[in-house]
Design a binder for these strands. Structure first.
Length: 167
DNA sequence: CCCTGATTCGC
DNA sequence: GCGAATCAGG
């Protein structure tokens, strides 16, 4: 679907009528709300009832292109999700969050690790004091509840936390 | 989690 | 110019 005059006119009308971008997209058909918003901006009719001083709140520039690479995901081996050990995988939060826990872990060695114990790594795997969390896991789960949240954190959760941390 | 508009940037 | 991915928020 392309933006012919007819569709652009309808877009303008619906936008001025106060419909949301997704509603307009549904009305037009063949386009997403992103397409509608993008078109609205290019037409220069954004800011319907916005603040009279848009320059006061310039949008923060993007840090670096995020969509050039897929987000790092934890690898899996067989049925078991591997924790992000510093050996093969980039640690999700290198300086923060790695050692800080709301409870004290069992701190078990690999020999003491059992099926029902959390496999979250603690410390440097190349060192002899390397341990696993070892807290109780739910049946079949590789991590305890706390570390499962870290390992399987969703994008929105991560965003929410980042935002909360930034203030 | 559902949604909103705003922005960037590869295409 | 287009719009998906993303951001920032309600």
């Amino acid at each position: 679907m392309s933006w012919n005059d007819e569709r652009v006119e309808l877009l303008k009308k619906l936008w001025q009528d106060g419909l949301s971008a997704s509603q307009i997209a549904a009305e037009l058909g063949g386009v997403t709300r992103n397409a509608v918003i993008g078109k609205v901006h290019r037409l220069g009719l954004s800011g319907r009832v916005k603040s009279p001083t848009p320059s006061l709140a310039p949008r923060r520039p993007r840090a670096t292109p995020q969509h050039s690479q897929p987000r790092p995901r934890f690898a899996t081996q067989g049925n078991v999700a591997l924790a992000p050990t510093p050996v093969a995988l980039p640690s999700p939060m290198p300086h923060q969050e790695a050692e800080v826990m709301p409870f004290s872990c069992e701190r078990v060695t690999i020999m003491e690790l059992r099926e029902c114990m959390c496999r979250w790594p603690l410390g440097d795997p190349s060192r002899s004091d390397f341990r696993f969390c070892g807290s109780k896991t739910n049946p079949g789960a590789p991590y305890c509840d706390y570390h499962a949240r870290m390992a399987y954190q969703t994008v929105s959760e991560r965003r929410r936390e980042r935002r909360a941390a930034a203030g």
